[in-house]
Write a protein that binds this DNA or RNA. Structure first.
Lengths: 176, 176
DNA sequence: AACACTATCTATAACTC
DNA sequence: TGAGTTATAGATAGTGT
């Protein structure tokens, strides 16, 4: 959509990225506005720049739409618990892709943290104690999450094989 | 953007409106996805059709971004912290809290996965192979992320202690 | 009625000042 | 270096099936 075709991949140059972010964010909000007018739809958008600066658009308002969404979401979750559909498999797969993408984002953030930490090494000792505690807590959470994934693996295995084989594989994995 | 130019005004015909809504919603989500990838931005979109049907897009996830937004929103109402150093540190801390929140969201998703998997155990063997591969890949990524967090820890330690002590601690942790 | 098609309009990447 | 311009890629309104 410009002079040259660009690949949809992270823009490295910070300056170019900032310009692209600003332009595309404007374009996105314009599209959202058109959608709400053309189709009588309610819409809310929240964007965080790479520097964690928040931008939002909403019709009739971000908070109103968000609240509405949360209300609907909890209801539909309750229904799904009791009502099984075959299409869930593909949605599961989709969720997996989403999580993978999220993990990638977190990896990048971790690296950014490292950069920032380097720049602030010796400036605020008392706050670093706080940070360290947060990191340790965070690591614990990630570990728990990893365990949860393991449980999921076991369930998949359960779906494919006679149960006898499972325990071996699980224990083998645990030792790793 | 089509065969004819259209005015940005409410589309009356329900059929046309539905088609327009569907197409433009898809386009909007695609743009949002591109924005998040190109610029490393986090984004959440919620749309309600005229029939109050909810549609959402989120990277890394609607819930995570929404929670982050609400937190930032309330923060901005608080008294500003003017010190530059403190501002940066608190932003770092903020990012940590954000990541923790995301991990929590992922944990919940993981549990939901387990629920759904239980219900679908023996139905689609070929798809389970796919799922299994995805999970293994996912686990690898989480492992990498955990390592990245470890690196961050080391940097924090560096900021607090004489360098000599660090290597011991790092190696000790590595063996774990 | 959910697709595919395509002529046309719109967003924007690179450029300019 | 931020705001405006332009050539081009991308989105989509109307259409066909």
């Amino acid at each position: 959509m410009g002079r040259r075709k660009i690949e949809i991949a992270a823009v490295k140059d910070p300056n170019t990225r900032q310009v692209t972010f600003s332009k595309r964010r404007t374009g996105l909000f314009k599209k959202a506005n058109e959608l709400s007018i053309l189709c009588g739809a309610e819409i809310a958008i929240v964007v965080f720049s790479i520097g964690n600066r928040p931008y939002s658009f909403g019709h009739p308002g971000v908070d109103a739409v968000a609240a509405k969404f949360l209300r609907h979401e909890t209801k539909s979750n309750d229904v799904k618990q009791n009502n099984v559909e075959v299409g869930d498999i593909s949605r599961l797969n989709q969720q997996l892709l989403d999580i993978e993408a999220q993990i990638l984002v977190e990896e990048k953030k971790g690296l950014e943290h490292d950069q920032i930490l380097k720049q602030h090494q010796l400036s605020q000792p008392s706050q670093f104690k706080q940070l360290q505690d947060s990191y340790l807590e965070l690591q614990r959470r990630v570990k728990d999450y990893t365990d949860a994934i393991e449980v999921s693996e076991c369930l998949i295995l359960l779906a494919q094989q006679p149960v006898v084989e499972i325990t071996k594989q699980v224990k083998k994995r645990r030792k790793n």
